[in-house]
Design a protein around this nucleic acid. Structure first.
Length: 503
RNA sequence: GGUCCUGUGGCCGAGAGGCUAGGCAGAGCUCUGCAAAAGCUUCCACAGCGGUUCGAAUCCGCUCGGGACCUCCA
């Protein structure tokens, strides 16, 4: 089998993946800031890296997957002005800051569950690692790469760049920018006068009196800077250098760039070997994000309760929508596209279910050698495509090519012995592995079916069958029509059975 | 202004020198008591203009369009 290759943002090319410790992988992914509700755009990295996680497990690695929760510091409430930090929001809602954070953390966890994302091995919080962050900042100061100003601490980017460029780690190495180029276009920010250079970034911020979230530090009461938590927590749980660091492309600069600088000063090596970045979800070609006010919250996606939505979309539909494109391409949101995904997923899932119930028979020689070969190839390519920078889109395309074959066998349109037992069982096995274990798809029915419903529907199906046998089409059509009105679709199969699905 | 990405059929999207994915929608047919589902067939592409090449959607140049980052951001 081919070897896994991933596109490394650091080197701008696909590279063979080799873990530092054979058999083990350490992966860090930037998690959410829990000052507000997650939106559709947030779903992408968490689903993308869930696939990465699942695929690495499939390859047999033991993976420690760390995904943080940013619940402290300097961040903004969605839809509010810049100065409206978590603290003032808390006052408005008469909530403790941690109460607010808890609320959105719970909501986030709920959404992750809806998507069938496997929880990370460790989910550290920024507030739980204030000490680690302070220790790290002290080390950076001691090494001379940070300075204190009015109770805040800033990272000295110019000095870092000068000293580490010669060691092969210039500031900007990840995002491909050169320090001098960046000076001109940057805008005015608060407290710029405290910084020696515009490019310097905060490691620790002095807390103004009204800021409720504050901790004692060697520099006075304040809160950690925007980037230090990831450096502190990834080092703590994954070591000075680990295998994969993931996140959205918009985090590449400055967030990941700053992480590299901080960690490199402390640990003398680039923190992660492979940097993976997923692209954005767009709306009419524009990134879905705070700044554009075009985001659709996940609760709205699931309920359909948003002006831009023509209907509700099931979490599995969204998951599949994301899988149908390569993670490094933008993905344009649209009702038409989502509906197409919904229909496609339904067709795929039904064929998948059929494939798992199929009797593989016992014939060694395929009657239709060409078809047998085609099926085998389509299945074998699953691994090949995933190994090529996790190309889920191509795997999905192959799965769809297998659908007519599966349905054809079911309908007896394709002879039972056309495909060998070997190939059929390979198909069964690999479909299950990829559909359920790696893609993490699951039946929509599982969400709202407690088992009793199935019994009731089977009863109605039997009644319809009896009516049909008696040519009592009035009764049989009534059962079918009224169930359809409830969103349950009956289908007369070729073999005389009746199956159903939820519309 | 700087750095970088991108432009594929009605829509969403793979592909990245020759074999021209896939899904949805449209059209026709088959099966069926009817319908649905399913199956089969089919229409519709590589922004424009040049260049390289035996051959370009794919490489190069220009033009036009879209976008990301440089500020919190997945």
């Amino acid at each position: 089998m081919s070897q896994l290759k991933v596109y490394n943002s650091l080197t701008r090319q696909k590279e063979a993946f080799e873990s530092i410790t054979p058999g083990h992988v350490g992966m860090y992914v930037c998690g959410p800031t829990v000052s507000g509700e997650s939106h559709l755009g947030h779903a992408r990295p968490f689903i993308t890296f869930d696939i990465v996680y699942r695929y690495l497990l499939h390859l047999g690695y033991k993976v420690r997957y760390v995904r943080n929760i940013t619940d402290a510091g300097h961040f903004e409430e969605e839809g509010r002005e810049a100065e409206d930090k978590i603290s003032s929001k808390a006052i408005l809602e008469k909530l403790e800051p941690m109460e607010l954070v808890q609320k959105y953390t719970n909501l986030y966890h709920w959404a992750m569950l809806q998507f069938n994302n496997i929880p990370p091995s460790i989910e550290p919080t920024a507030t739980g690692h204030i000490v680690e962050q302070i220790v790290m900042i002290e080390k950076i100061i001691a090494d001379g790469y940070a300075y204190v100003a009015n109770g805040s601490v800033y990272f000295d980017v110019a000095k870092y760049d000068a000293d580490f460029s010669v060691k092969g780690s210039p500031y900007g190495m990840l995002s491909g920018r050169i320090l001098e180029d960046m000076q001109e276009g940057s805008r005015e920010l608060d407290n710029q006068e405290e910084k020696r250079n515009k490019a310097d970034f905060a490691l620790w911020k002095n807390a103004p009196p009204e800021h409720i979230m504050r901790w004692v530090s060697p520099w006075g009461e304040g809160f950690p800077g925007w980037h230090i938590e990831c450096s502190a927590m990834s080092t703590k749980y994954l070591g000075q250098q680990f295998d994969i660091h993931g996140g959205g492309m918009d985090l590449q600069f400055p967030h990941h760039e700053c992480e590299i600088a901080q960690s490199t000063v402390c640990n003398h090596k680039t923190p992660a070997r492979y940097w993976l970045h997923n692209n954005m979800i767009t709306v009419n070609g524009k990134k879905m994000g705070k700044s554009y006010g075009n985001q659709i919250k996940l609760t709205e996606m699931f309920s359909g309760n948003h002006p831009a939505l023509e209907q509700a979309y099931h979490p599995m539909v969204i998951r599949f929508f994301i899988l149908q494109t390569h993670y490094r391409s933008t993905l344009d949101f649209g009702n038409e596209a989502l509906k197409a995904t919904e229909k496609g997923l339904k067709r795929l899932w039904e064929a998948y279910t059929t494939s798992q119930e199929m009797n593989v028979g016992n014939n060694h020689a395929a009657a239709d050698a060409a078809l047998d070969e085609k099926v085998r190839k389509l299945v074998e390519q699953f691994d090949e495509f995933m190994n090529d920078d996790l190309n889920t889109a191509k795997v999905v395309a192959n799965m769809f090519e297998l659908v007519p074959v599966i349905n054809g066998i079911k309908d007896k349109h394709i002879a039972a012995d056309a495909i060998s037992t070997n190939t059929l069982s390979l198909l069964q096995r690999q479909l299950k592995v990829f559909v359920e274990d790696i893609f993490g798809l699951k039946s929509e029915e599982e969400y709202n079916n407690d088992g009793k419903l199935d019994g009731v529907i089977q009863l109605l199906i039997n009644m319809r069958k009896e009516a049909k046998d008696k040519k009592d089409y009035v009764t049989s059509d009534k059962i079918r029509t009224e169930l359809a009105a409830l969103g349950i679709q009956l289908k007369d199969d070729k073999d005389g059975n009746i199956s159903y699905s939820f519309a």
